[in-house]
Amino acid sequence: MSDYEDGYEAGRNAPNIRQSYQNGKAIGNGLAVVLGLGFRLVVETLVLAPFLVLGLVLTTNLDFLGPGFGYTRLLSIGALAYGFYALLYLLKGVAIGLRLRGTRHWLLPFTLCLLVACVVPSLLLHLFIVHTVKAAHPVLVWVVPGLFALYTYSRYRFTEDIAPNLVLWAYRRGYHWTVK
């Protein structure tokens, strides 16, 4: 082929090459979004694991909810998990209110909040790592759950006067109960 024909073919195929590049970039961006959302879903599930497990344990022996994991049982697990999540923020409101009053009694609800929200999920993660990865290094078995406990502590912000909108009513109830 002559140089003219090579240039002609390259010019004719240029839109296809550009479109192929754009398609590959769009697929890569879409895959990154899906993986990011999947990772976030796993982390959120681990953060809320104590509440979900508690709801599961409490509904296990309730035969009137139907067999297996039907809609009724899943809704009751979700309702119980939300109730215990709201109870955690009620305790957080009590702890913040007692701390603002200047007493040391705030340490008891604060400790309960830490145990439920930070220690239990990290222990569940520790057990998950130990039982799924047989050849896990001992440092990995304890460092990852420790970092996860720090993450959950930073997420709940137990020493700050703040709560998510979903359970703000429970937090305010606990706060006003102790401040008045």
Rank of each mutant, 00 (worst) to 15 (best):
L124I: 09
L56P: 06
W177V: 13
A136V: 13
L166Q: 12
G36T: 10
Y156A: 01
Y8M: 12
V141T: 12
V34I: 02
Y8D: 08
N23K: 13
I129H: 11
G83F: 11
V167I: 10
L58I: 15
V144D: 00
L80S: 12
E9S: 02
T152D: 06
G68M: 07
V47C: 11
F110C: 01
N165C: 06
V42D: 00
A163W: 02
A86L: 06
G97H: 01
V47S: 04
L58M: 15
H176E: 10
Y21L: 07
L123V: 03
W169F: 06
A10Y: 08
A32G: 08
T45N: 06
F84T: 07
M1C: 07
N165D: 05
T103W: 03
R173H: 05
W177P: 04
W106H: 13
V133N: 13
L166M: 14
H105N: 10
V143S: 02
L52T: 09
F84A: 04
P145I: 10
I27C: 02
I27L: 11
D161C: 12
G93I: 01
L74D: 06
R99V: 12
L46P: 04
H137G: 05
L115C: 10
N29I: 14
V179P: 08
G28E: 04
L125G: 11
G102Q: 01
K134Q: 15
R12N: 00
P50C: 11
I129T: 06
W142V: 15
T111S: 09
A49M: 08
F158V: 05
L125K: 13
Y156W: 05
N165L: 12
Y175V: 01
R155K: 13
A149W: 05
L80R: 09
A32D: 14
L91M: 14
N16D: 14
R101A: 07
Y153D: 00
V94L: 13
V94H: 02
T45M: 11
P109V: 00
F39K: 04
T60F: 13
A32P: 04
A79G: 10
G102P: 00
V43T: 02
L91G: 14
